[in-house]
Amino acid sequence: MSTESIEQPIKQKSEPLFGKKNRKLLSNPLDADNPVTVQILGICSALAVTVQMKPALFMAVGVTIIVGLSSFIISLMRNLIPNRVRIIVQLMVAATLVVIIDQLFKAYAYDISKQLSVYISLILTNCILLGRIEAFAMGNKPWPSLLDGIGNGAGYGAILMITAVFRELLGSGSLFGYKLLGSSYIGNGVMILPAGACFVIGLVVWMQRARNGYREE
């Protein structure tokens, strides 16, 4: 995560709330600057929770809320945080939010929280979270930080959903639990295993790069 350098602070003076630059903050991470396939952050949970659409959706929502809010809060107090302890401060703010989301899921979406198990807690070490805080929220005002967090959360969520569509459809012949391929369809075991997610994400990266023309040597 620290391979990225701190991005240039965005000039705020004449910028309306949903001006061009701010909209870019939301839309860029969806494709050209996607946290999963381009920045290669937050892979762990993208592999682990994408067997079915439903938990993937909850995970995506949870991550978006947490990344957005913690970017916002850190950005609010960015001038108060002593530099020497900033990582611990970031972690503590993020951890508090993660625990709150975890407790909310346990109280109101128990089945989902059982399926996601420790992966909700592990949002804390999801590199997207600390990556965005460190690279963006520490140097920008609260509003753009919030948008940047939400944009990156959504970009992550998009990859999660694409992966989950393939894995649930091919692995169990259903989407969101509804059988689509009929009972005669025999699920593809590879798609159900976490290893199958590696292949799907590998192919998604391939497709995206073939389209965008991005090369890595």
Binding site: L80, I81, P82, V85, V89, M92, V93, T96, I100
Partner: peptide, 14 residues
């Protein structure tokens, strides 16, 4: 002081 305030605050919220 900053760290203590932050810890206490998050512990209370949690």
């Amino acid at each position: 002081i900053f760290m203590i305030t932050l810890s206490v605050l998050s512990a209370v919220i949690l």
